[in-house]
Amino acid sequence: MTDLLQLTFSGIATGSIYALAALGFTLLWQASGTINFAQGEFVMLPAFAMLFFAAQGAPLPVAFVLTIAVAVAVLGWAFKRGVVDPLFRHGMMAIVVATIGLSIAMRNGVRIYSADAHPFPSLFADKLLRVGGVTVSLADAGTLAFALVLVVATQAFLARTLTGRAMQAVAQNTESAAVLGINVPLMILYTFAINAVLACAAALLVTPVYFGKFDMGESLGTKAFFAAVIGGFNNSRGALLGGVIVGIGENLAAAYISPAYKDAVALALFMVVILFKPQGLLGRKEERKV
């Protein structure tokens, strides 16, 4: 029983990492129909930016703030203007392939800078807590708490503030939002900026575990995609749920079914979920249009 709890908690901690990356995925999808195959690299780049600023002598919080500024400009504004805007009306395929190209370029650009894995300072002290026979590292608990706060904050921002509501209106129906006098391009730009900030936060939390490496985004991006699909692509809370389910599912499959097939076992289960609830667990149904 304690073993099961141990696995479950570890899974939740890992899942909250996936969720952080998945959150941005769902936001971009809602606001602009963008599926960003470079989402993992969007976490990797800030990790290296922070390492770079830290190497120049900046303390971690300063490095974090500087990185956010750069990320909002590059991964937010420039990404939207340079890649998404020109492709927006050409549909999903073009954007998907452009972001695949982007991920190749980003990964291999950083690889030239360094092909090594770099340790990354953790926000939390290196402490182990024992709760009812289960050992939890402070970092695991902290990551989970942080992920929860970020998801709740994002939700609250979208639901409670005027800007957030306007962004949601854009996401649901761009044309009527425009008719209502909402500045649609600005709202979409906000979404991209938020995605960039979330990517920086994710980098701060996941890099101590993933280590700063040029290809860290590869597996992270795939897992985040799975989490987003399972949770429901058009719902931010779904990202957290999806991430946690992926995290726990993999652990239980590895422990009780087959370590060699753990990825497939978890995916097969999700596939069943998807077949019976094609919108994901918390997603809304999208109408088919003629």
């Binding site: 020109p86 050409h90 190749i104 370029a105 291999n108």
Partner: peptide, 18 residues
């Protein structure tokens, strides 16, 4: 730089010819 250039070329190609 060849894979970096390749990735960038794909992005530009898509923007130019979606």
């Amino acid at each position: 730089w060849y894979l970096f250039v390749f990735g960038a070329a794909v992005v530009l190609l898509m923007i130019w010819l979606p």
